[in-house]
Design a protein around this nucleic acid. Structure first.
Lengths: 128, 128
DNA sequence: AGGACTGTATGCATAGTCTCATACAGGCGC
DNA sequence: GCGCCTGTATGAGACTATGCATACAGTCCT
């Protein structure tokens, strides 16, 4: 079951949903033809309004990433637009720098934070 | 001269400014004590309202990343003094979890982000 | 003192986001 | 047909983001 995460970073909810689904599709966690969660399902799961989810799905359809079929559901498009790996590494670097800035401004050693993250990440991964 | 880039991805402008500055600080493109562009400067450069830049700067100050001095300018915060043991580990854990949440919500592998952080952290140490 | 620069603060208008509530409409299986 | 699932649609209300204009206030330099 697709596990999306929302935060209150100031980024609109529908943008977070849209971008996370895009990545799930790009990384083939969601495969072409596969059915996405129902708008209502996702709305309930994320404790968010149905229209907000719809907004995200609408934009995904406009870019051709998914296909929305009335009364049947939504599905990953057969030929989804590619998401390149270069962008992925860029994101990783960007997020790392952001985390380091947070650590430094909190008076912490970034390396220690990174180590702690690795520990937590292991447990995180072990659950699957 | 700091070169920020805005897009119309749906992410609020002030969030884009805030996060890009945070990354510039994290990557030491902006160094502790260094002056940031004037709010007006940045507003003109980005063709954006003064209040929008202010919004970004305000949030950066609240998190302690920068210091705003009335009538003088804004500066990257000096690294605050490290805290004592117990409190520090707690902070580290909290920040780690936050960073992991950010990574996951960005569709990234937390372990990869942690590794990247270690690399960057090494370079930081080398500069001192 | 005066000018030029800084951040701080308003008010107004417009557009976007989000929630809540309530419906309508099409497909599928019994 | 009927019920249940799907997406589609609308309107009200609250809140936020943004731009534009205009000011105020503190600091620094000459």
């Amino acid at each position: 079951m697709l596990n999306l995460q929302l935060d209150n970073s100031g980024v609109p909810i529908y943008v977070q949903i849209r971008d996370q689904l895009l990545r799930a599709i790009g990384s083939r966690t969601l495969r072409p033809g596969e059915q996405l969660p129902t708008m209502r399902e996702l709305a309930v799961q994320l404790k968010v309004d149905l229209n907000t989810v719809r907004h995200a799905y609408d934009e995904l359809e406009q870019t051709g990433a998914i296909v929305i079929v009335r009364a049947r559901g939504t599905f990953v498009a057969e030929t989804p637009p590619p998401l390149d790996g270069a962008r992925q590494t860029k994101k990783i670097q960007a997020l790392s720098q952001q985390a380091i800035a947070l650590a430094v401004s909190a008076g912490l050693d970034p390396a220690e934070v990174a180590h702690e993250m690795l520990q937590l990440a292991k447990r995180h991964g072990a659950k699957r």
